[in-house]
Design a protein around this nucleic acid. Structure first.
Lengths: 228, 228
DNA sequence: TAAATAAGTTAGCCATGACTAACAAATTAA
DNA sequence: TTAATTTGTTAGTCATGGCTAACTTATTTA
């Protein structure tokens, strides 16, 4: 019970900053997030970020001391989670009903997540029968604002001979997502680690009776559940 | 074949002005549309409108002479029609799949129509199996950019004894739409004109075995097809 | 046709959210 | 522990899209 009626009057920019800060806080667990880091993430100048952070502090969505690290208030966090909920629900809709591919959804969902209507998103959720995961395998936060993450095991952390199931992929790069689709990997694919080459840490994997060699960088962005 | 690749880089405001001008040009058939009229329609000052019209003229979407009336170029018209297509497709989606009511759709569709993705709108169209009319009975322009209007017969233009079918309603006012729903009128309702009162032009109508008295103003916003 | 009114334009202001350049504080390395 | 580097802040600029107030041109109407 954080807010009265949630009269969400934020601009698109304010929403973008809150969501970005939330993502950074999640990713860099415990290591604090700074102004320039946020600027780089959003591809804007540190000055712009500094300016926006001032506004968000005034609105009590962000806290930080001068020259100190950034953090979200409960209210700021709650707004960010709702944005992520919207983003992932839209991605799910685009993939499951409108024939979008993994690499196409992000840009459009980025626009759709700023549409303001409580009813819209809750009805969309109902229409799709309350999906648990988005197309990349990430958990979709519920209407209650709960945010949780799947324990992430990188494909690159496995050993030769291990067998695993594809659980999620990092959705940060369009080129990566295209690549994943192109070689034929989909969620739930069973992957066997055939060999890890010492020289460059590249990995030979087998899935769906196909053998591929992927780089360490690729394997860092593929999240799996170990089977054996 | 009006444009090369349609790299639609318009701002939300530019789109709003183009769409508004198009609507005004359609409504006030032949009588020209002026700057202040557009300003009033958009609820902004004449100065703001003047300013934006300058921009749109520079981009060759609008034509007008100094102190003269406004008109759209082919390209401007085409953009406006695509916006109306998007608006009406989203309204249809909201009503038919997400349980929105007539009076709720407009505000949300107003936001959704600005989402930029050719694929999104064409896939949405396909998903709904290419609907011909939006929830208010208006024709949805096709992907080819054709815009046509149903011949509009106002309920208020009928005579006592006439029987007609509800074809469309004016979607300009939330309160009107709520009112229409509340008394139980839906598209295709069969309406009989029982009596037209000379005193105030109010009309007694019968539909679905209900008798209601509606004002002239109400009947001006209800469009029908005469049966007998 | 001259005065009144309506319609359109211009100048100048404001807020938002970008930017660069210059500066201050904090951190790291020598 | 001082110097170099990184990080954060401030000041001032720009574009967008609003606004008001003042002005000009067109159109009515007396």
């Amino acid at each position: 019970m954080t807010n009265k009626l949630n009269s969400n009057n934020l601009t698109k920019s304010e929403e973008d900053y809150l969501k970005a800060l939330f993502q950074l806080l999640i990713e860099s667990d415990s290591s604090k997030v700074g102004n320039n880091q946020l600027a780089e993430y959003l591809k804007v100048s540190p000055a712009s970020t500094n300016n926006m952070i001032k506004k968000l502090k005034a609105k009590a969505y962000v806290v930080s001391e001068k020259y100190g690290k950034l953090d979200l208030t409960e209210e700021g966090r709650s707004i960010a989670v709702r944005l992520i909920r919207k983003h992932r629900l839209w991605e799910t809709f685009l993939c499951n009903y409108l024939n979008f591919t993994w690499d196409e959804v992000h840009e459009v969902a980025e626009q759709l997540e700023h549409v303001k209507s409580r009813k819209l998103i809750n009805e969309l959720d109902r229409f799709m029968d309350y999906p648990k995961k988005d197309p990349h395998g990430e958990l979709i936060p519920g209407a209650d604002g709960d945010y949780s993450v799947l324990p992430k095991v990188m494909l690159s952390s496995l050993s030769e001979g291990d067998v695993c199931k594809l659980e999620a992929v990092n959705d940060g790069s369009v080129n990566f997502l295209k690549y994943v689709s192109e070689i034929g990997l989909v969620l739930s694919s069973e992957i066997k680690v055939l060999e890890i080459r010492e020289f460059d840490k590249s990995i030979r994997i087998e899935f769906n009776n196909v053998v591929e060699t992927v780089t360490r960088k690729f394997a860092d962005n593929v999240f799996v559940k170990k089977i054996t």
